[in-house]
């Protein structure tokens, strides 16, 4: 289960935002991923508290906080599974 502060962006993943969409390059695996707008927001702010991001998304997009939280957690877990997010050093 994804938790605040447990993960960070993988330093082996190069990325930049192009026209509002994050393009991630997994250098070791030789894969690229493109994120949609909300995914890009979550990726750019992955080091910030989840509840703060959920509040911002809920306000900016008019979506229920419960839905925004559920989607954000699912997204972050998929980023961990793909290796884009890795465990932060303790």
């Amino acid at each position: 289960m994804y938790e605040d502060g447990r993960y960070k962006r993988n330093p082996d993943v190069s990325w930049r935002v192009i026209e509002g969409q994050a393009v991630l390059v997994h250098n070791r695996e030789g894969e690229i991923e493109v994120l949609n707008e909300v995914g890009t927001y979550l990726w750019e702010h992955a080091d910030e508290p989840l509840e703060q991001l959920v509040g911002n998304i809920s306000r900016d997009y008019g979506v229920a906080p419960e839905e925004a939280r559920r989607d954000a957690l699912e997204f972050y877990e998929s980023m961990v599974a793909s290796g884009a997010l890795v465990a932060a050093e303790t």
């Binding site: 909300v38 900016d60 997204f75």
Partner: peptide, 17 residues
């Protein structure tokens, strides 16, 4: 004006050869 919400997702993925 509020933006349309889209569930956060990977919208494109490709293996680079």
């Amino acid at each position: 004006m509020q933006r349309a919400y889209e569930k956060p997702a990977v919208i494109y993925k490709e293996k680079i050869e």
